[in-house]
């Protein structure tokens, strides 16, 4: 189905994809936790977590969590009765706040700051 994307449908698509990614991430997270059985396993997991690619993945995870959480907050506000005319401004507001939070969080994850 080809249909002109709008701000609302963009927000929905981001919410769907990020929700799916977070669901998949939970399984990955449980798998990593299951490796922490002894000091050797713990050291091995910690070493893996220091790899640049994993750190990049963690920064990506932060972006997905922020995006999903803030858009979920936006949808909740709108369904509580915040006026529909504000839905686009709420999205771009959430985007700006989310971008700021991402920068604040991603700098230490990626080893800067």
């Amino acid at each position: 189905m080809r249909y002109k994307p709008q701000t609302g449908s963009l927000a929905w698509a981001i919410h769907r994809v990020s929700g799916l990614l977070l669901t998949l991430y939970i399984f990955l997270h449980l798998y990593v936790l299951s490796q922490l059985k002894d000091p050797v396993g713990y050291a091995s997991v910690l070493k893996t977590l220091q790899l640049p690619l994993v750190r990049l993945g963690e920064a990506g995870l932060l972006a997905v969590v922020i995006g999903h959480a803030l858009n979920g907050f936006r949808v909740t506000l709108l369904e509580w009765g915040v006026q529909t005319v504000l839905q686009k401004r709420l999205f771009w507001g959430a985007f700006a706040v989310g971008f700021l939070l991402f920068i604040i969080g991603a700098v230490p994850i990626l080893g800067g700051g």
Binding site: Y3, T7, S9, W12, E79, W80, T84, V85, Q87
Partner: peptide
Amino acid sequence: HSIYNCVEVCPKEIDITGHIALLK
């Protein structure tokens, strides 16, 4: 899922999603 496509296209400019939220 409050996607707002309906609001964007309504030729009578009805706040459709607002009405749906009220029913919810």
